[in-house]
């Protein structure tokens, strides 16, 4: 079985800045990590490898620094990693990103399974998994919390929805986006770290992917960010102390009165 895991490098801190000109995230000067939700996709791939002897390729589109994220994936046990990077990719929205990733995956050969995180903690859209599936004309199951067995080329999975769990099976090849319940991501191993140090990462750029230039970057993105602002939180917190029992009773009474008054 061949598995691709798509991982995105995201800024570590929550104090990210935006470029007022291009209105995209400024990545310089902020420490970058693997999107925490993508660690679950890596974990899912590694579990499948243990069960079905798979070959795992981690794929990331991003600036050259994204190599660090890919190496971390290798240290966790991923077999190989590919960086998709080109200045021309900057400013891509999810549509353009999905197009680029899909083209790269096509060039890397046939995969039985493509795994994604639920969403990236910076863009927060969760669109790339299903969009990439559509671009590759593959089936997709989102919010997967369990991968059960593989039977006759079909993967049995369960999917977390609003009011319960759906049981589904998906004909491979296909795409899954996974959630946290899939399993605690393992830590890098010593052997993995050694391998990560030495591994050569093949890369793809605009030219090697033979992409349609009109479909990438800002130009290829259907959506445009037109304004960014800080949300205003206008809350006036009424604080009550509850140090003594009398205070506690008073505070509880005030709280109940408050709920009543607000009729919530």
């Amino acid at each position: 079985m061949r598995i691709a895991v798509c991982i995105k490098q995201v800024p570590e801190t929550k104090s990210v800045k935006m470029d007022p000109e291009t209105r995209t995230v400024i990545r310089q000067g902020v420490q970058a990590i693997i999107n925490p939700l993508d660690l679950y996709a890596i974990e899912a791939a590694l579990q499948l490898k243990e069960a079905y002897d798979a070959q795992i390729t981690a794929v990331s589109m991003g600036p050259p620094q994204a190599v660090t994220a890919l190496k971390e994936a290798v240290a966790m046990g991923v077999d190989e990693a590919v960086l998709i990077s080109d200045r021309a990719f900057a400013g891509s929205d999810t549509w353009a990103t999905s197009y680029i990733l899909a083209e790269a995956l096509k060039q890397l050969g046939e995969f039985d399974l493509i795994l994604c995180g639920e969403r990236a903690t910076d863009g927060d859209t969760g669109q790339v998994g299903p969009e990439m599936a559509a671009a590759l004309d593959l089936p997709v199951v989102t919010y997967v919390n369990h991968i059960n067995e593989l039977e006759d080329g079909k993967l049995k999975v369960s999917r977390l929805v609003e009011n319960g769990t759906q049981k589904l099976s998906m004909q491979l090849p296909g795409v899954l986006t996974v959630v946290k319940e899939i399993g605690e991501p393992r830590l890098p191993t010593f052997r993995g770290k050694l391998k990560a140090k030495e591994i050569e990462l093949p890369g793809f750029d605009l030219e090697s992917l033979k992409l349609d230039k009109s479909l990438i970057g800002l130009k290829g993105s259907p959506t445009r960010v037109v304004k960014i602002f800080r949300p205003e939180v206008v809350r006036n917190c009424e604080l009550m102390k509850a140090e003594t029992e009398a205070q506690t009773v008073e505070a509880v009474d005030a709280m109940l009165a408050f709920i009543k008054e607000e009729s919530v």
């Binding site: 935006m18 927060d124 259907p222 960010v225 960014i228």
Partner: peptide, 15 residues
Amino acid sequence: PAIGGNIMATIKCPE
């Protein structure tokens, strides 16, 4: 909301 709700972004789709 984007970036964990720290920023609000207004987006449009011109074409």
